[in-house]
Every structure is written in C-alpha cells, then in structure tokens.
Design a protein around this nucleic acid. Structure first.
Lengths: 225, 225, 225, 225
DNA sequence: GATGAATGAGATTTCATTCAT
DNA sequence: AATGAATGAAATCTCATTCAT
C-alpha cells in the first residue's frame, strides 16, 4: 500500500470543484486570501490588541490555516504594517472625498471623522488599537503612524491655505498649528469614545469640536452660527 | 562562631554603613521596593510598550530580582494598573493645582498639560503608552482609563460651570461637550507629539489649542487676544 | 542560488533515506508524535510522579522538542488525562480478554492483574503513579479514575452475575460489594508491591487473594482447592 | 527620628498580652506551632495534593506566617515526612487498640479501618494523598510508606499467628501472604471510596471484605456466619 | 497556493529557601 | 520564636517562525 501513488487517495476537496464560486486565477485567489487575512487581523486587533493577536489566530479567523499569514506576509510585523495602512486608508478616503470652501472643508472633516467612528466602530477600534500600539518609543508601528499623521496634517494645512485664499479662514491662522490641533482633537476625542462609549456626550462633543474650528478660525466678518 | 574573624571577609555591605540610606523596617523596605518597581515599569513601558515589557525586566531594572514583581503585586495585571494610576495621578495633580477664573482655568489646563509633555517626556510617554494599550476592547487597562477620563471630564465640566458663573464663559456652552472635546484635544495633540516629535509644530499647536478654547468659549464682550 | 552544490552539504537526513522508516503523511507524523509523547509521559510519570514530570521533559524524552506537548495536547492536564486513559486501557484489555465460568472469571482476573504488574512493572507503575495523583480531592485526574473504577466494578458485577447464573458463585453474594472489594484488593495489593518490591511476599499474596475469592464466593457444594 | 530606638514604636501585639491564653513556655509554644503546622499541612494535602501545597500556604493556614514551616522544619521534605508519619500513627493507634482472638483481630481490623475512613474522611484523605504521592519510583515519601506498610504487615502476620495458635485461623494460612492481601484489600478499598464516594457500595464492600477474611481464613470447624 | 507539524525562545507565575529584622 | 522581603530556579503555556508535504 505505501508503494501506490498517494494522490489518488487524497481526501482534500478537489480544487476544481471549488472553482465555480471561487476566483479563477492564482492572482485573484492570492488577493482574496490577503484581503481576508488583513480583515481578520484588524478584527482581532480591535478586540485584543496587537500583541495579544497571534498570526495563527488571524489565519484561522480568516477561514484559512495557521500558517497562511507567514506564507503571504512573511512576518507578523509586515502583516501589521499592512493592516495599519489599510485602516489609515479608510481615513484618507474620507478626507479626500471632502468638498467645499476652506472653512467648510475643515468642518466637514470634523463631522465625517467623528461620524465614521460612530458608523464603523469596529474599523475605528482597529485603527485606534494599532495607533495605541504605535505610541511606545520603540514600536514597530510608530513610523507607519508618523508618516500617516504627517500626511493628514499636510492635508489640513492645505485646507487652511485654501480657506485663507478664499477668504473663509483668518489669515493669521498658522496652518501647521491648526493641522496639529485639529488632528489631535479628532484623534483624542475618538479615542475617548472607544475607551468609554457610554461615558461621553458624543453629540455635544462633536458640536463643540465643530465650534472650536468655526469660531476660532472663521475669517472676521464671516457669520458664525 | 568560627574562630577566624568573619567581618573582614564579609562581601555584603556593612550594615552600619547602609543604615543611613537603606530602610530599617520591613514596611519601609516594602514601600521602597514597590515604588522602585512602579518607576521601572513606567520607564520600560514608555520605551517598549506594555506587552513587550516583562515583569522580569521590571524587577531587574528596579535593581531587584526577576521574581520581585510577582512577590509584591501578584501579577503583571496588577502592576500595570498600579503603574497606570501613578501616571494618571501626575495629571490629576497638575489639574488640581490650577487657579483662576473659569476661562483661565481652561486655558491654564491646556498650557500646563502640553508643557508637562514637554518638560517630562518620559513620564508622558509612559502615560500615553498605557493609554494606547487601553484602547483594544478587551484590554485590562481599559477600565482604569475609563475611570480616569471620566474624572478629568468632570473636572473640566466644573471649570466650565465656574466660568459660566463668573461670566467668563458663554452660557450656551455645553459643559459635557466641552469636557470631552478639550480632553480629546489635549490627549490627541500630546500623542501626536510623541509619535513624531520632529514633525509637529509644537508651539503653533499649543497656541491653536489655546485659541480654540478662548475664541470658542469666551463669553461675548470679553476681549479675546 | 550559490554556485556550490547544495545537496552534498545538506546536514538534514536525506528524504529518500528517511522515507522507508519515517511517516509520509501529516496524519501519520501526528499520530506517531502523539503516541511517542504519551509513552514518554507514562515512562517519566512512573519514575518521578505527575507533578515532578514537566511537559518539556516529556517532549524531549519522546525525542522531540520542549514545546511539542503543548502543540499536540494544549495543556499538561489533557496530556495526563490521555496518558491515564492509555494506562487504564491496558487493564481493560486484560479484563476483557478473560474467559471461563463465573468464579473462574474472577479468579482469572486476580491472577492476570497481579501477573501484569509482575510482567510489566513500568506500565504498572505509571498506572499507579497517576492513580495516586488522583486521590487528592481537587485532582485533575480524579474524574478519569472515578470513571475507570466504575467501569471495572461494573465488569466484576457482571462476572458475579454470570457465576450466580452458572452456579459457580453463591447466590447470596452481593455483586456491588464483591466488585468494590475485589477491585480494592487488587489495587491495594499491587500498590504495595510497587512501594516496597522486596518487602512483600508476592507469591503468597497472590495465592491469598485467589483464596479470598474462591473460598468466600464459591457456591456451596463446589469443590474448592 | 531614625536615631531614636525603634522598639518603643513597635506596633506588634505585646507578647506578654497574649500569654494569658497561650502556652507559657517556649517549648509549649513550639510544640503548639508544630502541631498546627502539621495539621494544616495534612488538611491542604488532602485537598490539593503534596506538590500543589506550598509551605507558605501551610504556614498561613496554620494561623502563622509564610516562613514558619521552614523555621520549624527546615524544608518541605521534612514537613511532609512528619505529616505522613502523623497520618500513619492514626492507623497504628487503631490497629494497636484491637482485642480478641486471632480471627476476630483480623475482622476487627477490617471493620475499624473502613469505619475510620467513614468517620474521619479528611484525615483519611490526607493519608491517602500522601500514600498516592509515594507510589512513583523516586518519591521522597516512598521510604516512609515502605516502612509503615512493613510494620502493618508485621502486625497482621502476628494476628494470623495468634489465630493459628488459638485455633481460630487455619494453620495452612501463610501469614506473610495474608498480611499483604489484607493490607492491600483495605488500602485499595479505602482509596476507591475517596476517588468516587458516591459510586461505591460502602456497606456491601465492607461486608464482603469481612467475608473474605472469615470464610477464607477461619479454621475448619469454626462456625462462619 | 496552502497546510500544519515542529521548534525553541520567551513570557508569566509559583514557590522553596535564605536571611535580616 | 516568628515574620516576611527577597531570590532565582523551574514550571506551564504562547507563539512567531521554519519547513516538509
């Protein structure tokens, strides 16, 4: 019996039988697996944190095997950086989709950021869990978030300059300072919501954040609500 | 008693020589050890994060043995909760030391919080590293920070009410909303500084934070700078 | 790819050379490893006892790594329960292989049980070491042995009823009582042999055990030796 | 303040104040403490087993400190040997208190041993837990129980010879074999009761044990019930 | 492409023992 | 006599990673 070829007695599901519903090409299968792994990683990280999430758990939670994360990403570090960038991309997409004059761009950003946390708390928690893990000095994720934060601040600076150009934002506003303060306000307010969802007056907090931006930055002569 | 003199070959520090500096009673020894362990824990957590810091490292970094953390605290969980509360107490002390009328209380809080991060970056990083570890849903530290955040917000609400009483803060300001927004602004701005110390315009950011508070909350008729 | 040939410097055993003896499929490898681990566990437990046997030692004694026990069984508790059941199975197989009329079934059981201890002292010591560890109130193994003992007693009760049916065993014998007393006699006598192999008159003890059964349970009129 | 003598600020209870109810002499105090420690050790061993019982727990359970076991006994090994001998002494006292002719001595032994387990299950479990720990080959307790078992068997042999002398026990009974079989029967039956108190027909088992002795050993011509 | 067996480093925790008070 | 602070060895368990299938 050991001398007979093994392949004929293979008990695994025939790959051909799965092919009707699954993606056909290798590349599609590969992409699907990677996306599944990244999603699973974010889901688990949101719940347990970066260090308490094992690559084996990620593989299994994605519907695959314990070994697949290393097969696709090579290391946990790489997986997490990719997952962090995925989370960051959600925010980038929100910010890039905004329209309006300068001041309204800022206000819209405040609103859509906080409403994102409200609408997609799981995605948000994944983002915040990874950001939290990036705070220690020697964190592997620190660079990824430093780059991301810098990009967000650049965007906000741009918004401020637009507003100063179109006359909706005071010309004495310091773009870099505004960028850091607004980024911080949103990040810190969002994090608070996740730490104690019931303890925070969400609506009132959002309103105050908006007022901070409007009353503090609106060009004189603009009617502030 | 052996006939040869022992004292000269004794490799331990002479008790008489230690007596001026080392504690005599068990309670003193105990308190000293606990403080040393908590300090070492915060130092290491600031650098490597909560999960990458081992209790053995903490014991050794405190100048004791690998096992002392468990001897004193019983578990890593308890050590970290204690260390988190120590970090939180620093902030509480800052906030409780503030004086002035309502609006100035808020402004002073903004200034002293951000200057604390500047003055004691290691303490601040320890605080932020533990806060970051509290963000995942199942974090052991989440409750500790939920309580702390709630206390901070209560204090700020109180400041707002004081200001509404003394005429320095607009009466239509929602205390709970202001509390959440200010707490968030400070926390998020501070965290940004730690993620990328060089990338953030610290001075400008602080100034903008102060303006947010002043311009947005000052009672009409008050002269804002 | 280095230009030098790799195959000649490969320090691993040539796959072709291993293929005759080492298992090909994962399942075979898995089963082999588990059996090796269980055997090693019983060997070490017999010598040092349950608590003085570490899972790392078991892995190494089985020819694998320190971590393999937890990889396969998840915990020491599970390993020991499995090992205990393996040991119990040896006894069950002896008992299930017995033939004869009612009284002779009991006598044969006494003989084969005690001769098993004599023939396979290492297996027997493993069984007794785990049984001994099951005696404290909160032992993890207690349930496993409670179940096993109950099964053995049920079998003996059955033997008694057979003997009462075929006229070899007194009809006034209480099956449940006989079951407990016989089980106890064999267990206790066997344990004594292991505690002090030289101090016990093995032959004489076996003869007396057999007499206990014969003279006490033989139906009146049966000729007892 | 550190230069003033400390003794006057001692917050411990004054030893003199305890002396009214506690034993007066050092020796009495010492003996009391040792007895308390041995009792606590047996209590804990009965519940958790030998290796899962820490000397610190014993000290505290006895109403003293973590360190007292080592202060009095020097090591855990010595404590356990002492505790084992205490447990063994209970049985010795039972056996030594028996009276009657030869066969009745054996029967009385069976009865009083099994009723001891019933009357003092905690004491019995302590004995059996330590005996169980003595079964592995390299157990520290093995020698202690080997000696004890040998002593018990000698006593039973003596009973048999008494019975052969007074005509109540068959002269062809082998004293050494009877000793081992009876010891085993009682030990194994008792252990079974502790493993599964509800699963064993205690009354019936005791009756059968008694019958084993009576019917198998009674001198021919003696009226057996 | 995917699996999972195997490794071994490293984490937390327990604890017997030592020793200063 | 008694306490308990401190040590450090050793245990269990987790898990990132490697690699044969």
């Amino acid at each position: 019996m050991p001398s007979t070829p093994r392949s004929s007695t293979n008990t695994r599901p025939d790959p051909v039988m799965r092919s009707n519903t699954s993606p056909r090409t290798k590349q599609e299968r590969r992409d699907l697996a990677e996306q599944s792994l990244l999603e699973a990683a974010r889901r688990l990280v949101a719940r347990r944190g970066v260090d308490q999430t094992s690559v084996a758990d990620v593989g299994v939670a994605a519907g695959y095997s314990r070994g697949l994360v290393n097969h696709h990403f090579g290391s946990k570090k790489v997986l997490l950086r990719r997952a962090a960038r995925e989370s960051q991309r959600e925010i980038v997409e929100i910010v890039e989709g905004l329209t309006g004059n300068g001041l309204e761009l800022l206000v819209a950003m405040v609103r859509s950021y906080l409403s994102w946390i409200d609408r997609k708390p799981d995605d948000a928690r994944a983002f915040f869990a990874m950001w939290g893990a990036a705070l220690p000095q020697e964190s592997d994720l620190r660079e990824v978030f430093a780059d991301f934060d810098a990009g967000i601040r650049r965007t906000i600076e741009q918004f401020v300059r637009v507003g100063q150009g179109d006359g909706t934002i005071r010309t004495d506003a310091e773009p870099a300072g505004v960028a850091a303060a607004v980024t911080g306000m949103l990040r810190g307010t969002g994090a608070q919501l996740l730490v104690a969802p019931e303890g925070v007056a969400v609506e009132a907090a959002c309103a105050v954040c908006e007022q901070f931006v409007r009353r503090s930055l609106a060009a004189p002569g603009t009617t502030a609500p």
